[in-house]
Design a protein around this nucleic acid. Structure first.
Lengths: 335, 335
DNA sequence: TTGTAGGCGTTATCAA
DNA sequence: TTGATAACGCCTACAA
């Protein structure tokens, strides 16, 4: 902070020299372990000079010495979707009470990152959430790893959500409402969570022989979704209901419906996934499969902590829930 | 990967011993600097044994030795808003071509974090984006710091966007359309970016004496926004236009309008901020102030790199733009 | 072509 | 109450 703004950072040794004490004294004082070991005025002097010199601890050195960094990495496919904020919040809560910080890293498969561009960083563990199998395998670096919302990986604690069950509930709801032509709007991003939904959809359809099913794979580009949906709805015998892999996709359908002068909930039923905050506020409010994202992060962090303690948890599957709102209604008599 | 799954991690020394070479050879080989210095079969043997032993580099040690970690931290107020995904993308692009990884840390003021709960981590720099002054001051750790979309900090490179100018354009647009009662829906999260908008709003209003202005401060809880807007619109001489600090807030207005049977763009004009992907897709498409978020991240990372190189850039302000769509229209004759 | 040795900045164990 | 001193695991002159 004062004159000596040289290149070289201020080390604890510098402080020791300046305060005329040994380096170990500095360490003790600066880590708050001096009570009853160092005289109070000495401690004060050390703190003062550390401050004056603008001393900053070198975390790399500390981490090396301690053999741990107190930070884990949460790898997610994208920062665009707010769902990962919820996962993070859940994980952060557990982390905080265990002295672990979390840092987020978006691992966009879209960017075609070949060699995993990890920050060259010192980590105590990794939580991989909703990633592609490829990305997860790149993450297996020997660090404690737990996998969230993803295909079980051998020897790796896994927390998943019963998205298949959610899909089943969605379809049961729709068929009960009389829908017989149902479209599944799929996210084409390669991720287990989406293939699970597709599989569940296909399987459920098998037990409803009276239903004609179809599906469409889309990127998350919302104009694309809208346009392709418009197309899919502009045919004879169009679908009367659409299940979407994500609430945002569902909301794009709203735009498509409005362009076609279709009223959601009456002419066309729509179901989303995730229950984003915006889902409840859409017009009409969106029926959606609520995913326990906070719990996902929470349990994931818990599993990572257990893993660091030498306990490898068994895979867990969290329940999901269909939240019925106004975007679904009885199948229209004719289309 | 094989039997020796003891507690102690495998070090380069272990590899050296097992491969019957010196540690330096291991280092050379594993860093790809062996070409022309180490015989090829030796190199292969080293790589093989490293693999067999499951050797993983200790980043803390490497970072300590190298005096740098190759990773910078991007601190953001929340992960919920996708705008920060864009900032990140811009920054990541520059970072990647300079060997710097980025890691994201949500610094929620809401959580009442007192002392900055940084992961105890080794970083090469920090980029603070759209934070509260309090949070920024907590980030001044002696690391190279650049501040984005925030109040200029002494001795710190800053990149901002001309949000005030954006607000001015929004108001000019509205007054030109004949609006005389305008409401500013403000985000109550303490952040420079929002106070700037408020100041710009207040100031612009001064030069339009015929306009009656009002404002409302809301959290980002969208039900709250909807309900309070409904209230604000349920009075005699209600506002005919609303400017919102964020597109998501604007979209909440849509819900309010629908509840009141008001048609956006005709009975009520709405302007947002950010130009999120959803803005263009809303019904009707949202008029909004587009912020150069990608450029913000890009320039910010650039400034950080310059700073590490000893060059302290001057503050920069990026231009903003009003994107006129269908949510704004002529003021209704009577209200 | 390979090995030796020193040091990066901490923390922790012991002696003084 | 304090100070030497020895690691932590890695990289890199320099020596062999």
């Amino acid at each position: 902070m004062n004159g000596n703004d040289q290149r070289r950072p201020v080390t604890a040794t510098d402080v020791a020299r300046a305060a005329k004490v040994s380096q170990s004294t500095v360490s003790l004082v600066l880590n708050g372990k001096w009570q009853g070991r160092i005289r109070e005025d000495t401690a004060r002097r050390v703190m003062r000079t550390a401050d004056d010199l603008g001393y900053r601890i070198n975390q790399s050195a500390r981490n090396l010495r301690l053999g741990s960094t107190g930070t884990v990495l949460l790898a997610v496919p994208t920062l665009v979707n707010p769902v990962f904020a919820t996962v993070h919040a859940g994980a952060a809560r557990v982390g905080a009470s265990n002295g672990l910080g979390i840092v987020v890293f978006p691992l966009s498969a879209e960017d075609g990152f070949g060699p995993f561009p990890t920050p060259r960083q010192a980590l105590d563990g990794v939580i991989a959430c909703s990633l592609s199998a490829h990305a997860v395998s790149n993450l297996r670096t020997g660090l404690p790893l737990v996998v969230l919302d993803d295909a079980p990986v051998p020897d790796t604690p896994t927390v998943t959500m019963d998205t298949g069950g959610g899909m089943a509930k969605a379809l049961a709801h729709l068929t009960a409402l009389g829908h017989r032509r149902i479209l599944h709007l799929r996210a084409e991003r390669p991720a287990w969570t989406f293939t699970r939904r597709a599989e569940a959809f296909d399987q459920c359809i098998l037990s409803h022989p009276q239903v004609t099913a179809d599906h469409l794979s889309c990127s998350f580009a919302i104009e694309e979704i809208r346009d392709r949906t418009i197309q899919a709805l502009s045919v004879a015998n169009r679908p009367t209901a659409i299940v979407c892999d994500d609430d945002n996709m569902a909301l794009s359908i709203y735009a498509a419906a409005s362009a076609l002068d279709l009223t959601i909930g009456r002419d066309l039923s729509v179901i989303g996934f995730n229950d984003l905050p915006t889902a409840a506020l859409a017009t009409p409010p969106l029926t959606t499969v609520r995913l326990p994202l906070g719990a996902l992060g929470f349990r994931g962090m818990q599993a990572l902590i257990d893993l660091r303690g030498g306990v490898a948890n068994d895979p867990v599957t969290l329940p999901t829930e269909l939240v019925i709102r106004k975007s679904t209604g009885p199948a229209p008599a004719t289309t």
